[in-house]
Each structure stands twice: as structure tokens, then as C-alpha cells.
Simulated scan of single mutants.
Amino acid sequence: MSHLTSIAAVARNGVIGADGDMVWNIPEDFKHFKRTTMGHPMIMGRTTFEGMGALPGRRSIVVTRSPEYVPNLTKGDDVVVVHSLDEALEEVAGEDAFVVGGAQIYEAAMDEVTHLLISEIPLEPEGDAHFPTIDPKHWRESDRDPRDGFTVVTYERREA
């Protein structure tokens, strides 16, 4: 069975970004993100894609409402542009895939994902992008892994 996992770095106050960018720099969390997502497709919004670009070893599924959006690519980039979350889910059907942001995509995918992989960041920065509330009625914490400067917490969807 394939899994769809939202992976995010989330501050104590729920902030995941400001002005289309991250508001902290924790190299060990970036390494965790790279190791975890390597070889798997990643679903993201256009702004998130434009911020991170095409990442080697991973297919980027970019969701945009703009019918004329064409990403700036270089040779070898593995990028697919779609116009809805449903189209993105069709692109990754049968594969273990990750939802990597931003806030609108996390919110739209919340009912579709089977797991949450949250790097809890012990900060309370100002920001305009927030991760959706993790409702304990729907999610149970299955693992907590303290790291240097953050904690990786895994949640699994509760059975209905």
C-alpha cells in the first residue's frame, strides 16, 4: 500500500513561512528532508516550487491555478505541472509520495494524506503561512525523534 505523507517544518505557533520563504535555517532539518524525500515524487504549490526549484532525484508535481504557467527548468529537471490536487494525486497514484507545501496545498491535502512527518521547530516567528491544525481526533502520534534544534514527529491517520 502506498503512503501520501505531508512533510513540513512547523514552528510552535504553527508558522511554516513568511512572504513565500522559510523563516529559519536549520541545515540538519534540510538534510532530513532530502534523505526522506529522495527518490519519491513531491506535490507542491507553485510558490513553493519557485522557492526551492526542481530538486535532484525527485519528481516535482507543481499545482497551479494558472493555465499558462510554465516553470523555469533546466535540462534533467523532472517536473510535471497540474491544475488541481486531484490531478496531482493521479500523477502519484500507487507511489509513496510527499506533500511539501505550501500552506494551501497542505490544507487541501489534509484529508488525503495518510501520515504527517513534522519537524517541530522550537521557535515562534512571525509568518503568514501556517500548517493546518493537527486534530488528535484524526491523527495519533506514532514516533517522536529529538534532533539537534528540532524534533521529528510522525503522525498516523486514525481509522474512521
Rank of each mutant, 00 (worst) to 15 (best):
L4T: 14
H130Y: 15
P27E: 10
V70T: 14
L73W: 02
M52Q: 10
M52H: 06
S119G: 15
T114K: 09
F33G: 00
D78N: 12
L4A: 15
T47C: 00
I105V: 15
G76F: 01
G17D: 05
V99W: 00
P27W: 06
N72W: 02
S142C: 12
L116N: 11
P146S: 08
H83W: 06
K31P: 00
L89A: 05
R158W: 02
G127E: 00
E90Q: 14
E141H: 02
E159S: 15
S6Q: 11
P125K: 04
E141T: 11
G20M: 07
K31N: 09
Y69L: 07
D96G: 07
F30I: 12
K137Y: 10
I134N: 04
T151V: 12
T5F: 08
E28A: 15
W24G: 04
G14I: 14
F49E: 05
L85Q: 10
E87R: 09
M22I: 15
M22P: 04
G94A: 08
P136N: 03
A108C: 03
E50Q: 13
A11I: 11
E87P: 05
E95W: 04
W139G: 12
F33A: 04
E120V: 07
I26Y: 07
T151D: 09
V92E: 03
A108D: 08
R46M: 08
E91D: 05
G127W: 01
G101W: 00
P125G: 08
S2Y: 06
T37Y: 10
P67G: 04
S142E: 15
V70F: 03
D143Y: 06
H130P: 00
A103S: 15
I16G: 05
V23M: 09
E126S: 10
D78H: 04
D86M: 03
M42Y: 01
R65G: 14
D148R: 08
D135V: 11
D135R: 02
P56Q: 08
T133A: 15
V82N: 09
T133I: 15
G101F: 00
E50C: 02
E120W: 02
R144G: 05
F33Q: 02
G14P: 14
Y155R: 09
P122C: 01
V79I: 07
D96W: 04
I43L: 12
L73F: 05
T48M: 10
P132G: 03
V62K: 00
G51M: 06
A97L: 05
A108G: 04
A109M: 08
I134P: 08
E90R: 11
R46Y: 03
W139F: 14
V15F: 11
L85N: 11
G14A: 13
N72C: 01
A108K: 11
D86Q: 11
R144S: 14
I61E: 02
T5H: 06
V99P: 05
S60M: 15
G53D: 06
G76Q: 05
G14W: 11
S66I: 01
R144H: 08
E90M: 05
A11D: 09
H130T: 09
